[in-house]
Design a protein around this nucleic acid. Sequence first.
DNA 1: CTGAAAGCGCTTACAG
DNA 2: CTGAAAGCGCTTACAG
Lengths: 333, 333
Amino acid sequence: MAKDDKVTIYSVAYKAGVSLATVSRVMNHPERVKKETRDRVLKVIDELGYRPDAIARGLASRRTTTVGILVSDVTRASVAEMFGGISDIAIKYKYAIKLFTVPEGIDYDELLKTIISERVDGILQLNDELDHGQIEKLLDICGKNGIPVVLANVLYDDPEVPSVSIDYEKASYELTKAMIESGKKDIYILSTVRQYNVNEKKELGYKTAMEEAGLVPRVLRTSGNTEVNRRHFAEHFKNQKYDGAIGVRDSIAVSFMNFARESGKKVPEEVAVAGFQNTKYATLASPTLTSIDIPVYDIGAVSMRFLTKLMNGEEISQVKVTLNHRIIKRQSM
Amino acid sequence: MAKDDKVTIYSVAYKAGVSLATVSRVMNHPERVKKETRDRVLKVIDELGYRPDAIARGLASRRTTTVGILVSDVTRASVAEMFGGISDIAIKYKYAIKLFTVPEGIDYDELLKTIISERVDGILQLNDELDHGQIEKLLDICGKNGIPVVLANVLYDDPEVPSVSIDYEKASYELTKAMIESGKKDIYILSTVRQYNVNEKKELGYKTAMEEAGLVPRVLRTSGNTEVNRRHFAEHFKNQKYDGAIGVRDSIAVSFMNFARESGKKVPEEVAVAGFQNTKYATLASPTLTSIDIPVYDIGAVSMRFLTKLMNGEEISQVKVTLNHRIIKRQSM
DNA sequence: CTGAAAGCGCTTACAG
DNA sequence: CTGAAAGCGCTTACAG
């Protein structure tokens, strides 16, 4: 099959009777080519099924039309959905996606060098698992190499750094307030031992709401692992009063709810429970779990769109984008 | 900062007092370079923080050391975990990952052309959402371009096509048999309306086990959406006997279990329930859900490893790899 | 509007 | 063991 003998810009140029420069122009700056010529070339491109080699194009043009996605824990449920949003926009703007994970204990500096050498046009950093220093390093090296970065679902205070997220503190404040208004008083926040910025904000919003209502805030930091936190709950609440709990993640909230019910408490009558993220865990729980809906798909889509603008050098009106959250009321509160 | 003025193979060669060919050799065939020279070059590489440009290297060497991951629905929980396995092995073998999603209604032929033009060295196709014709097209175009493909968690009967999966039929057979042995008789399989190969295999294994025991197999095809299937269950089981159900996914099983309990049935005493995949849904359910553990991480890791062998032209001992599943017994059965 | 030529940053036979 | 040169498949000033 001669047709499959690798069709390059040369084959197209030859068959269309033009130079390769013209073929290139037809693809990249069609308006600079006379309509007749353009149509002829286009026809040949179509007949041959020609597609420019992305690698060669990347080398010559110094743009790879590829974005790098940096993420620590790919297995988190929210990451998958964020990918959905990112990918949909990436397709729309014809960007390819390169995935970089940051496993525990990886040589982070090496990883950054790899990313640079992979020549992505822009980077999306997902979630909050890197520490401040790591993010700084990322921003620094990308800055030096002229690679724009958007932080997606990362709380990073520097007002100059593009980020897309929601107001977790406010969300937590509102959720806590709603629980207080439903009549609960001994409300815990169930947070994680490992300190994430997001969870700190959630704790903050919770505390404010509790203090405003003259109640004592109580933070219990536990594991994300169901078996571990179950034991932890059993031990801690053996002789503690409680009539409400907010989990910083749905899975923690559900785990707590199971514990409370098995301890003979009625949910929501005796104990109200609520979570964050509005994942499928919330709808599969019984009773169903009230949760803060984080528009994860949108965070992905908006940050990717944001990044395309930065890569094109477009004007940016707002560097910090905050998307709306919603309380999804269900049976547990 | 002159240091950041883009360090290329030229800068290294110049500073080390060798030709760029030697620098290239130090990186790609160090054994062909005299130790002294090699060390000198290595030192300069280190000082300058040089990393070869992946794009240029890809163009010159005709190998991008990049694999493409093709997946339809990134938001599925199992995909995230498979990414974990893939990514860990990819890092180990120094491959970059390019992610290609196949949204509903995309021009599939165009997508394939894009993938080819992106010049990946190999492709991993995840999960079972493409139809037979689409897989064939993929294999065909990759074959013509000399790009190896491994199917991960896809059931595809052609014995020539590399794939890594588990024996879903056997798993389902065993699970059903175990439920029968626990004394249940009116056991349903809760499958999906949309027909996936995997789910067909699960139905098959279930049927065999039921028929062997002289019981009547009953397939109920429903939606993966919790709200929809709940209504469906309520309607269908209004006047049907049942004392057991196997969901083709944990989420369906949990949804059914909630339904059964709210209908006043005791789980597992009156109704046994089990699922597939052993996701977090299973451990968060109350009672906890018996489930078939699919080693999703391993499927990812093994197929990626498999692919590296194919890309290196290594001998393959086995084209179809079947990993082991396990029944994780919990409270629901 | 079009073409010839240089160049993107590497790798790899080919000589020596 | 090392270097000079061609080439990977494109893009992009520069002329005309």
